[in-house]
């Protein structure tokens, strides 16, 4: 049985004028770490809110742990852990009071499920008498995760847990998720960071409320069509414009300090032709080479279709 299942879920806002999620279907297996990857406004939060019974879908069916999100919302609420994108614990209560409060409202105690959260809680335990509002961003995140886990949920929903957190804390956070997965907790996580996608078992790329692809990170990368090249020259902005004007350019995007380029038509001698074209345009220090595509490259390619 799938832990989470969506069938043709649709959600619109403002009386149907704004489409947030359209016809989304996917399944998440028991114990899987599933990532929803997409830019801001892609509909990730709307999907999460529908799955955590905070929002009613306009169409389609969804179930969590086998329970329908509309009919059995009460059962779902006691079985899932949800960590909203915005820090939403009581800032005027201490770390310990927050955790104890969320344990008790689920009818359990910190001690009963201490085993599950102890790895994470140990890191914030020295600050347990500090008010939650006075914690640093990374520590708030850890506390929120503890609070979402304290009742031993079957499915954990993490909505952009690493947004606004420094890169070291982000790495630690994903390490914690990996350990939780070993405890057979199904985790659904959303993120706008493409580099985090590779840490998931499977990922769904989502854009404007539509799913672009669902696959493992490796499978997603493998589905990239054509060869990807990285180009660079002394004047990167002029280079981008010139490359977009080039007759054999498929896609061309800035990627850090380089440009990522695919050819419209793969043919022999294409690289030499391009070099020549760029020299004609008076570019200097030209670098051109093959590169392995990443999730972001795949995302851009899916988006273009």
């Amino acid at each position: 049985m799938s832990a989470v299942r969506l069938e043709n879920i649709t959600k619109t806002y403002n009386k149907g004028t704004v489409s947030a999620v359209s016809d989304v279907s996917f399944e998440v297996a028991q114990g899987e770490l599933f990532g929803l990857i997409g830019p801001d406004g892609a509909g990730k939060t709307s999907i999460f809110r529908m799955l955590t019974t905070l929002l009613l879908p306009d169409g389609g069916k969804a179930s969590v742990d086998g329970y329908d999100v509309v009919k059995d919302y009460k059962t779902i609420r006691s079985r899932v852990g949800y960590m909203p994108g915005r820090f939403s614990l009581y800032q005027d209560l201490t770390v310990e009071e927050n955790l104890a409060f969320f344990a008790t409202v689920f009818g359990t105690t910190i001690e009963a499920n201490y085993e599950l959260v102890k790895d994470i809680y140990r890191q914030i335990e020295p600050f347990k008498t500090r008010r939650a509002g006075k914690l640093s961003g990374g520590m708030k995140q850890k506390l929120a995760l503890c609070c979402a886990l304290i009742h031993k949920p079957g499915v954990l929903f993490l909505d952009e847990p690493t947004t606004g957190v420094d890169s070291v804390s982000r790495k630690e956070f994903w390490e914690m998720l990996r350990r939780l997965k070993e405890q057979n907790i199904t985790i659904l996580v959303s993120t706008p960071y493409m580099d985090e996608a590779t840490l998931c078992d499977r990922i769904a790329l989502i854009q404007s409320g539509k799913i672009l692809s669902i696959d493992t990170p490796a499978g997603t990368v493998k589905s990239f069509r054509g060869n990807l090249f990285t180009v660079r020259s002394a004047e990167i902005y002029r280079l981008l414009n010139d490359l977009r004007d080039y007759e054999n350019t498929g896609t061309c995007f800035a990627f850090g300090e380089h440009l990522h380029l695919t050819f419209a038509e793969e043919r022999a001698g294409q690289e030499e032709d391009l070099q020549q074209y760029l020299r004609q345009k008076n570019h200097t220090d030209i670098e051109l080479g093959r590169v392995e595509p990443g999730i972001e490259d795949c995302f851009i390619q899916f988006m273009k279709q």
Binding site: T53, L54, R77, V80, Y82, R86, V105
Partner: peptide, 13 residues
Amino acid sequence: EIGTIEQINVTPI
């Protein structure tokens, strides 16, 4: 306003 109701709403309260 501070979003805590969101967290409360996904509990059995």
